[in-house]
Amino acid sequence: MKAGVILGTLVLVALIFLYEWPRINRTQKKEKVVFIVLLSLGTILAIMLILNPDLPGPTQMIEYIYKPLGRMLEK
């Protein structure tokens, strides 16, 4: 099951790559690098999330920081 989801993710990433890569100008070196970095970042995160869905997310982090204030509103 998980393998299928990962495969689907990889297909999606491949699609994005195939769609966008030819559209980036040859001269845009930096753009290419950023594109690759962001995409691989996404892929890694996606695989991490698939393998471990209970990974603490950004919301938990923010909630941790703002807890003292947030408690004011809790009923």
Partner: peptide, 12 residues
């Protein structure tokens, strides 16, 4: 060029 990669990140 970074629209789709960021869209992917947004989904995640």
């Amino acid at each position: 060029p970074i629209t789709f990669p960021i869209g992917f990140l947004l989904l995640l």
